[in-house]
Design a protein around this nucleic acid. Structure first.
Lengths: 227, 227
DNA sequence: AGACGTTTGTGAACCCATGCACAAAGTTGA
DNA sequence: TCAACTTTGTGCATGGGTTCACAAACGTCT
């Protein structure tokens, strides 16, 4: 029987969403030569409550020492393992406009775990351009490429109208994890995982809170008007 | 007394996060000439349960007609109002590398509600370059600019090490809503709102689920090994 | 060795969000 | 006008996530 709780137990989604942040902070601490942290210290760095941090970590196993804290190296390694970053993940980006270029050259992509193996765009003007050493090819070549060098994660950085067709092509080639930057809801068969990142959604949420703040500030005025 | 529930009642964060998606879908339907939708239809388009959609909308007021559905135009307008998109929000982007360029020319930014009023970067190589008609200027000019043409929302698209300093500059100039693309946790005074979008976090979450899928597929093998 | 201080891991209470199911309210058609 | 049908808005139950608070476990110092 495996003793690793990460492989046996279910890790809550909310916890998984925070693990990358813990990992990033631990890596920074390791670079700074810090050997050990308490949940209190680490939580303060990340901006969460220490109880939440401890409960999150408890889902991966018991890697702390009571009265002492957590060994930075060990904990970083265990989080990496839990997230699956000990193996590397071949990534393909479809849509090499401004955003696609930015993503391809984003250093966060290259860092541990992820490797860009394909860049796709049907615009002839981009044909055979290279970004970070990888050639841009037409989407039709996806199948061939995937057969030779399988793609684990597909990133969609096209305009919204093209997104569903690109998604279908990725799914058709066998990709079952997709990161979608296009402002469109994708329909996929079950078993395929889609995460969406939408810039304008984030802006709109900020606008909502900004509006609330300015309404609160102008309370007096509106109260008078309301009368 | 104002009769608008959006101004009086509290709208849950989870609801606010979904409103932009509802709005986008309604706008698309309006373009297609659709005049009315039921909660069932709209929910199917967006990919949520109809009960959730109705509950979300009930927080803004009562804009549906029983037995009929929602008027597309009216509902879109009411969501826009609730989100604060009826006024326009001046946005400044700091950090004009690949990502900054992509954001500045992203069409989602220009669409209703948001207007780019400033682009900042201290790299002399970028000085006086124009993107979408706006000149790139050094960060030191932020204060002056803000005094003339106030900035409501600041977008940080710099590398992580610079993010906190940029954030301090924005806050110092009076910006109280910040969208942070740098992989760093920002500390801000209370009253300032920060949202973070992190590309590598999203990738890592995908990797976690991908790993879980491949572990499930290889269950038999690991079970044998475990014995 | 034993007492003391520290920090983890977790049971239990709370809180928010989701989903169900139905009454209320509207339309349509005879 | 009235009955049949449709769809909203919402009270209630359920489930997950967060926070509290404390016992268990470890190191340290005498």
């Amino acid at each position: 029987m495996s003793a690793d709780p990460a492989l046996r137990r279910e890790i809550p989604d909310a916890t998984v969403a925070r693990l990358p942040e813990y990992l990033r902070t631990l890596s920074r601490l390791a670079e700074d030569g810090v050997l050990s942290v308490s949940s209190e210290e680490l939580a303060a760095e990340v901006g969460v409550r220490s109880a939440q941090l401890r409960k999150d970590l408890s889902h991966l196993g018991s890697y702390g020492v009571r009265g002492v804290g957590y060994d930075v190296e060990t904990l970083a390694l265990e989080i990496s393992r839990a997230l699956g970053l000990t193996e590397d993940w071949p990534v393909a980006i479809v849509g090499m406009g401004n955003l696609g270029h930015a993503l391809a050259s984003y250093s966060g992509f290259v860092t541990k775990g992820f490797r860009i193996v394909g860049l796709y765009d049907d615009d002839p003007a981009l044909a055979d351009e290279h970004v970070v050493g990888v050639p841009i090819r037409p989407l039709a070549e996806l199948h061939v490429h995937h057969a030779v060098d399988p793609i684990a994660i597909g990133v969609i950085a096209t305009p919204a109208p093209a997104a569903q067709a690109v998604c279908d092509a990725l799914v058709g080639a066998g990709v079952s994890s997709i990161l979608n930057f296009a402002p469109a809801v994708l329909s996929v068969p079950s078993g395929v995982d889609v995460r969406r990142v939408d810039l304008s959604t984030e802006l709109q949420i900020l606008a909502f809170h900004a509006q609330r703040k300015s309404l609160a500030a102008g309370d007096l005025r509106s109260a008078v008007v309301a009368q």
